[in-house]
């Protein structure tokens, strides 16, 4: 790296930090909202009545197959079509949360269905209601099982947040592009941004591992 890159980096430090801050807040909001919504989707997919299951199956399949960019554009423009004028930030977070919910929904369903049926039957046999069975038997096990996949999804959300640059949200990628358009040091700044994304995602991964260890069944 040549010294002029470091000069430029220093000059742009506040801009980069504000972009990083926005990327982190977008990701956090989308992951939180998406996970809550995703649990609802997952439960409906697993325990819902047939028509409910069908509706949510169509929902997850369409959302998962759609490029995130399209979801972002759709949420920004559709919101104004129906009279709710979402600003780019909210529209972007909404799109990411919806995308996240479809993935979390699938993960929750997979986790719940992987639990042998015998357990539900056993729980019924000892007189637990469905609510109790779910809360004390099924959910804790499913939670452990889907943690790794959930961490993956969270890291995906961070990467997908770059697409909000298209509707003008000044997250890390757009900030980086703004800097590049001034000094034309594309590779250096793209790699620097790449390194920052790596740090954020690596942090999520370590956090996931930590929670995994904490919740592991002692063996």
């Amino acid at each position: 790296m040549n010294p002029s890159f470091l000069d430029q980096l220093w000059l742009a430090r506040n801009v980069i930090l504000s972009g990083l801050g926005l990327t982190v807040s977008i990701s956090l909001l989308a992951i939180l909202a998406g996970s809550v919504l995703g649990v609802v989707v997952g439960l409906s997919l697993t325990y819902g009545a047939r028509p409910v299951r069908l509706v949510f199956r169509v929902y997850t399949d369409i959302i998962r197959g759609t490029p995130v960019l399209v979801l972002v554009l759709a949420s920004y423009y559709v919101s104004s079509a129906v009279g709710v004028n979402l600003d780019p930030f909210s529209a972007g977070v909404l799109a990411l949360a919806i995308f996240c919910s479809s993935h979390v929904g699938e993960i929750v369903r997979g986790g719940l269905q992987a639990i042998p049926k015998g357990q539900t039957e056993a729980a019924k046999a000892i007189g637990l209601t469905f609510g109790q069975t779910f809360a004390y038997v099924l959910w804790p096990q499913a939670l452990r099982q889907f943690l790794p996949a959930w961490v993956n999804t969270a890291a995906e959300m961070v990467k997908a947040s770059t697409l909000l640059s298209v509707i003008g949200v000044a997250e890390l990628l757009l900030r980086t592009q703004e800097i590049i358009s001034r000094n034309f040091m594309s590779l250096q700044f793209y790699f620097f941004a790449g390194a920052l994304y790596f740090v954020v995602n690596y942090g999520i991964e370590r956090f996931g591992k930590y929670v995994e260890r904490k919740t592991a069944v002692p063996s």
Binding site: S186, F191, G194, Y197
Partner: peptide, 15 residues
């Protein structure tokens, strides 16, 4: 695995 999975693929493509 750790390095690749945590990098945005765009950065790898440009690289």
């Amino acid at each position: 695995v750790t390095l690749i999975r945590n990098l945005p693929i765009l950065v790898l493509v440009l690289f």
